[in-house]
Every structure is written in structure tokens, then in C-alpha cells.
Design a protein around this nucleic acid. Structure first.
Lengths: 199, 199
DNA sequence: GTCTATATATTGATAGAC
DNA sequence: GTCTATCAATATATAGAC
């Protein structure tokens, strides 16, 4: 084991390495010790930057929330100006992000983080949801609770496909992730328009 | 630690106790040692009935598949004779089962089981999917691939809601599981009919 | 701020007594 | 068929040297 002194921003490096672990092996692959090992530092080093495992995971969730918000916004903008197109693109972007990074809503809103006081994370998650609400309200005036339900249903659909895809229900080699992303986009569209007609 | 000789069908008891663990703490709560502890037997005892951890999980998956198939069938029958009603009831039944037991498709079709040779499990999963295909084909003639896609989308939706619900995205105390089940039923209905009109 | 070393717990799995 | 005892890994976390 080549282990040396880490020079630079170890705190940020720990978060990035944690995200890499999640991407490669899912939630079960994450451990403080494994993250340290990957960076070539001692297993004690992370505890200089985070009081415990949960606070590291909270920082990971904050970063994931910011990254996801950026990708969803970019995908919506790339889809043009039609609100339904933008909402559908957001759903597809969520699926791609969650499959690629392993850090979707289940990491960002994980129940074990709910009691971790971390303003960075709460700010990031609030911004994420706020942007998403904007996307859905642009498609039409409706009670706020209806908007929230639409988002919940879209996320449930996208997260469900993500789980089935990453956990091997699909023959992953023969079904490209873009095909699943298209199904999420179509489902999202149907949520708004009430039917299954293509764009 | 009160530990004694187990009298009776330890094999079946191990499977039941495993399901209890999954129900209480999700996949992360399962371990061979914990299952043994719960039954008051030594950690070596399970290895007399299963060669390793994965074969125990495979037996758990087989039982879950049989139980789920029975509940889905019962829910469809209770919904009457209209094929759309029956399909929607199946989706709601899946959500209730997965929330209550922690053993949905992610356990039954877990990737780590794909290389475990277990005829009981493969027979149970085949029967489960076969019954589900019957439910969707009863709603109308369509290419088999379309039927499979409808099931996948329904399961993705239901599994996504299950994950969001069990992992704490919803304020679990204030949202009853039946309300989420109704949303899955409505979404399932929309998959078939192409719109969001209630029954 | 990072190291080495350590304490403690838990895991999956095996050997051998009964 | 179940037990006790044990092994090698791995985990979270801490104490004290540098």
C-alpha cells in the first residue's frame, strides 16, 4: 500500500472519491475506510474533515444535489422553450444522472441524513426542488399540491427505472441507457398532456 | 445471549426471519449472522442448510416471488372482471407488498442472484411474470414487446414510489401507504387507457 | 493535518466436539 | 444438525506521535 501525505483539498477530494464509489458500486460500496484507501490516505484522515460518516455523506448529498440541478437545468434549456419538452427532458436527465453517478434522490434525500444538520445540503436540496417546481409550473397553472404530485410521480418513474436498470432487472448490455431515458421522457410527457402521443 | 437448540424446520425459519429483517431495515439490514441471532441459533447453523449467503438470499427471493404473485392475483380478483381495473389493482398490490415486506423486484431479481442456480427461485419468478403478462394482455391485443414495456413501466413507477416512501422522501407519518397505492393504481390505469380519467 | 497504532464490533465462513 | 470456538476481513472511530 503506497500511502503518502495528501497535499491539496482533502475535504473536496473525499467527496469526489465518495461519489466515484457510489457510481461504481452503489450505496453498499461506500465506506469511510474505502474512500480513504482510494485517496491513499490513512483511515483516520477523513475524521479531521468530517466528524463522522454521516457528515461526509451529507456533503456528498449536497454536491450531488448541485450537480443534478445543473444537469437538469442544462437538459431543459437544450430542449428549447416548450414547457412540456423541458419537463420531459428533465426526467430523462434525471435518469441519466442517477444511472451514471449512483447518487439520485435516494442519496440526496436519504432518511439517515434527515437529522444531520448541514446548511450546505439543505440549501442545495431546496434549490434543486425549487428549480424542478419551476419546470412543472411552466407547463400550466394548477394548485401547488398538484405540481408536487406531478414531480413525485416523475421522480418515482425515473427512480424506479434507475433501480431496475442498475440492479440488473434489464439485460444491461442489450438495453442502452438512452432507451430507458426516452421512456422516462415519454412517461413525463404523458403526465402533463394526459396521453401518450409523441412530441 | 440465550441460545438454544432449534427444534423444527430451521431452513424455513431462516427464510422467514430473513424476510422480517428485510421488512424492518431494508437490504442493508440483512446478514447471515443477524438472521441466526434473531432465531437464537449459532451463526454456523445456517450453513448447514445453505452453502453460503447467496443461496439463502435465493430462497428468500423464491418465497417473496410466490407471496407477491399470490397477493397480486388476489388483488386483481378482488377488483372484479374489468381488465383495466385488475391491472391497476395489481400495481397497487405491488406497492403495498414492497413497502410492507421490503422484498420487491429488487430482491427477487437481484443481480447478485443471477448466477445462483436455484430451480425453486427460477420457477417462482417465471410464474410471477407469467401471471403479470396475463393481466396486461387481458387489457387488449398488442405485440408482446409492448406488453413487456407496459409491465416494466408499471413496476418502475411502483418500485420508484416504494423507494421514495421507504427511504424517507415522503413525510412517512403524514402520507398513508394507501394514498401512494392509489397513485400507482391511477398511473397504471393511465398506462393502458392513455389518459388520466378516474374509473 | 496527517500519520501509526489501536480498540471494538460485525461480517462470512470453517473445524471439530457432541 | 447444532454447538463452541476461531479465522481473516472490514467497519467506525479515537489517542497520541510528528
Amino acid at each position: 500500500m503506497t500511502r503518502g501525505y495528501h497535499h491539496g483539498d482533502l475535504r473536496a477530494a473525499l467527496v469526489r472519491a465518495s461519489l466515484d464509489l457510489l457510481a461504481e458500486g452503489g450505496p453498499g460500496a461506500f465506506s469511510v475506510a474505502q474512500v480513504a484507501r482510494r485517496l491513499g490516505v490513512s483511515t483516520a484522515a477523513p475524521y479531521r474533515h468530517f466528524p463522522d460518516r454521516e457528515h461526509l455523506l451529507s456533503a456528498v448529498a449536497a454536491t450531488a444535489a448541485r450537480d443534478l440541478a445543473a444537469e437538469v437545468t442544462a437538459a431543459a434549456d437544450a430542449a428549447g422553450t416548450d414547457p412540456v419538452d423541458r419537463f420531459a427532458a428533465a426526467g430523462a436527465a434525471y435518469l441519466r444522472f442517477a444511472v451514471r453517478t449512483g447518487a439520485g434522490f435516494l442519496v440526496i434525500f436519504s432518511a439517515e441524513l434527515s437529522e444531520v444538520d448541514d446548511q450546505e445540503r439543505t440549501a442545495a436540496t431546496r434549490a434543486l426542488m425549487s428549480g424542478w417546481i419551476d419546470l412543472v409550473t411552466a407547463t400550466g397553472d394548477r394548485p401547488m399540491q398538484d405540481s408536487l404530485h406531478l414531480i413525485e410521480e416523475q421522480i418515482a418513474l425515473a427512480q424506479g427505472y434507475t433501480a431496475l436498470y442498475t440492479q440488473g432487472f434489464f439485460h444491461r448490455s442489450s438495453v442502452p441507457v438512452d432507451e430507458i431515458a426516452d421512456r422516462v421522457a415519454l412517461g413525463s410527457r404523458r403526465l402533463i398532456t394526459g396521453d401518450a402521443s409523441a412530441p
